Computed example of a mutant assay.
Amino acid sequence: MRAGLQKTRRALNTDIRDLFKSEGRLVDDDFLGELFARLIRTDMGTGPAEKIRDDAAKRLRGRVVQLEEVLETITAQTQSMLEQEFAEIQIAEHAPTVILVVGVNGSGKTTSIGKLANHLSKAGHKVVLGAGDTFRAAAVEQLTVWAGRIGCDIVTGKPEADPASVAYQTVEKAIETGADIAIIDTAGRLQTQSNLMQQLDKIRRVIGKKVDDAPHEVLLVLDATAGQNAISQARGFSEAAGCTGIVLAKLDGSAKGGVILPIREQFELPVKFVGLGEGIDDIATFDAASFAKALFAE
C-alpha cells in the first residue's frame, strides 16, 4: 500500500512541508487555507478537503505545531472518513460465486480481473474467467494470457458474440468443473446508458437462471490516474450496473490517490481492492487505516 501511494504521498508531503518553518507554524486562517489548497491537489475534492481542514482547525487552531502533528491529525481524520464494513468478496453459500466486473475502457478493468483471479486462486479458490468484452479483441487476448499465467480455465466467444452467451457459458463451465468462483468481464463502453443497462440486465437474467442470486458481486473498476474524471465517467456505470463494490486501479501511477475520498462519499460503495502496480500480485484488499497511513505518513 505504501509503495502504491508513493507518488501521492511525495506530492502531499512536499506541499504540506512547504507550509512549515523550522520553528513550526501557527494554525490560523492563513495556514488552514493553504492546507486546504494542497489537499485539493490530490483530487480529493472540496467536501473531503473541507472536513480534514475543519478537523485540523478544531484540534489545532491557535497553536504553533510541527509537521508531524499535522500529519497525524489529518491521517486520523482521513481514516475515519474511509472506514467501512469489511469488504472482501462475498462468497455465495453454494458455489459458484459469480462476479461481474464493469468499467470504462482504459480503466484497468481486464488487468484488475487477472489480479483478482490470481488473488482468489492463491487464497485456495478454483476460478473460471469469462471474456465477456467480446467487442474488444485485445481484452479477450489479455484475459487469455492472464488465465494461462494463473492456471485457471477461461471461456471466450467469437468476436462480437453476445456477451450474455459468454456469461452463461462461463457459469456453466464453473458448475461443470466444480469451480468456486466465476469472474466475468463486460463491455467497457456502449453508445448509450440504455444499451448498457439492457446488456447488463440480460447478463443478469441468463446467469440467474443457472445460479440462484447471481451475480453475487458487481465490481466497478475505476482508474485512479483519472482523478475527478473517474467519478463522472463511472456514475452511469454504477447506476446501470447495480454495483456492490469498487476496485481502484492504477493507484501507483497517480499523484491523485485522494480521489478515493469522494469516491467513497459519492458512490456509498465499499472499496474492495486497490491496484498497486503492474505485476500479477500488485493488488491488495482495501484497509482504511493502512491507506490513510500510506497516504500521509512520512
Rank of each mutant, 00 (worst) to 15 (best):
N118M: 00
V101T: 14
L60W: 05
R17S: 15
Q169F: 03
Q198E: 15
P163C: 11
D212W: 00
I150K: 08
T73E: 15
T156I: 14
I52Y: 09
N118D: 09
D28Q: 04
S232V: 13
K272S: 09
E68H: 08
Q193H: 14
G257A: 14
V27A: 10
I181L: 14
A117D: 04
P262F: 05
P159N: 05
L71N: 09
E278A: 10
R205D: 10
D153R: 15
D30S: 13
T186S: 05
A226E: 12
R264P: 02
K7S: 11
F31M: 06
A230L: 02
S194N: 12
A167D: 07
D54K: 13
Q90W: 00
T285C: 10
K122I: 00
G124S: 07
M197V: 11
R41W: 00
D133A: 07
V206D: 07
P159H: 10
L120K: 05
R63K: 15
E83S: 10
S107G: 15
V27W: 03
I150L: 08
K272N: 03
G108K: 10
A230D: 01
G188M: 05
G106D: 07
V166L: 06
L39S: 05
A284S: 11
I40S: 00
G245R: 12
P215F: 05
I263P: 03
C152P: 07
V27Y: 08
P215T: 04
I154P: 12
A95V: 06
I203T: 12
E176C: 02
I40C: 02
G227C: 10
K209I: 03
V211T: 13
L200Q: 06
A138P: 04
W146Q: 10
D212H: 11
I89Y: 03
I154K: 12
A123C: 01
K202L: 06
M44F: 09
D153N: 15
E34L: 07
R10A: 05
E23Y: 08
R9C: 04
F273V: 02
A49I: 10
V140M: 06
K202W: 03
T144I: 00
A292D: 12
A49K: 09
R53T: 15
L35T: 10
R9L: 09
F286M: 06
G130T: 11
Q66L: 12
A288M: 09
L100T: 01
V98L: 04
R63Y: 01
D287I: 03
F296M: 11
G208S: 13
P163E: 12
Q228D: 01
G24N: 10
F31E: 03
G4R: 08
A284Q: 14
E50W: 04
T177E: 11
